[in-house]
C-alpha cells in the first residue's frame, strides 16, 4: 500500500483512508481503513487522478457545503489533529452530518448559510484552508466572502466548480475560464483540472491567498 496523502493510501487502485471509525455512507471498511469512493467524493476523484495536497494533519479547515458528510468523513480522517468547521444550510443532509459530528471530535457542525459568513463570523476562527463544494450559481462569490472573513494570510483554498450550476447554457470551458480569472485576481493558482470520468463538467482549483 502506498501513502499518497497523510492517512490516505492507494491499495490496488482503490483509495482508502486510515480510520478507526465505521462506515458512514455505505463505503467498505476493513482493518482500520475506509474505502474512499471517487464517484461519491470530488476530493477523492482529484487525488485518484494524481493531484495531491500536502496536509499536515493539524490544520484548521473551513468546509463550505459539507452536505451529508461523505467527503467530510474522510477529510476528518486526514486532519486527525486539527479541526474542521463544517457549514451546511440544508437540514435534511445535516441530519446525517450530525451523526458523523457526534462521533468525530474534530468536526464542528454549523447549520448556516455559507453565502452569509457574517452570521457565523463570531464562531469560526482564522483558518488555514477553505474547502468549498457548493454547486451554486454564485459559488465564487461565496468563496470570496468567506476568504475575507476567515482565511489566514498565505492560507489555501480548494474549490470544486460545477459548470452547469454557474451557467447551464454556456460551454463548460467558458465557465471555467471565467472562474479561473476571478480566482486569479486574489489567489495564486497552484493547480487546476477536471474530474473526468468521475464527475462530469467539474473543475477543481487549488490556490493560495497572496
Amino acid at each position: 500500500m502506498k501513502m499518497v496523502v497523510r492517512n490516505v493510501y492507494l491499495s490496488d487502485g482503490m483509495l482508502v483512508t486510515k480510520s478507526r471509525y465505521g462506515s458512514h455512507y455505505g463505503e467498505k471498511v476493513f482493518d482500520g481503513f475506509r474505502e474512499w469512493i471517487p464517484w461519491r467524493s470530488k476530493l477523492a476523484a482529484m487525488i485518484l487522478k494524481g493531484y495531491t495536497i500536502d496536509f499536515r494533519g493539524e490544520e484548521i479547515i473551513l468546509y463550505l457545503g459539507a452536505a451529508s458528510g461523505t467527503t467530510l468523513s474522510h477529510l476528518a480522517d486526514i486532519i486527525d489533529e486539527g479541526f474542521i468547521y463544517a457549514v451546511e444550510y440544508s437540514a435534511k443532509p445535516f441530519e446525517k452530518l450530525l451523526e458523523l459530528a457526534r462521533e468525530r471530535t474534530n468536526i464542528i457542525p454549523l447549520l448556516f448559510d455559507a453565502s452569509k459568513p457574517w452570521k457565523y463570523s463570531g464562531i469560526v476562527e482564522k483558518v488555514d484552508f477553505i474547502y468549498q463544494d457548493i454547486a451554486q450559481k454564485n459559488q465564487v462569490d461565496i468563496l470570496e466572502r468567506n476568504t475575507e472573513f476567515f482565511l489566514k494570510e498565505g492560507g489555501e483554498i480548494l474549490i470544486m466548480v460545477k459548470a452547469r450550476s454557474i451557467d447551464s447554457t454556456a460551454e463548460p470551458e467558458e465557465v471555467f475560464d471565467n472562474v479561473l480569472k476571478r480566482i486569479e485576481s486574489r489567489f495564486e493558482i497552484l493547480k487546476h483540472g477536471n474530474l473526468e470520468p468521475y464527475h462530469k463538467d467539474h473543475l477543481f482549483v487549488h490556490a493560495k491567498l497572496f
Binding site: F83, A91, F94, E95, L98, A101, R102, T105, I107, I108, P109, L110, L111, I123
Partner: peptide, 17 residues
C-alpha cells in the same frame, strides 16, 4: 475550548434540524 464549542454547536444544530 474546542470541547465546549463542539458541545454547543451540536446542541444548537440538533435543535434547529
Amino acid at each position: 475550548y474546542y470541547t465546549s464549542l463542539r458541545k454547543v454547536a451540536l446542541a444548537v444544530a440538533e435543535r434547529l434540524v
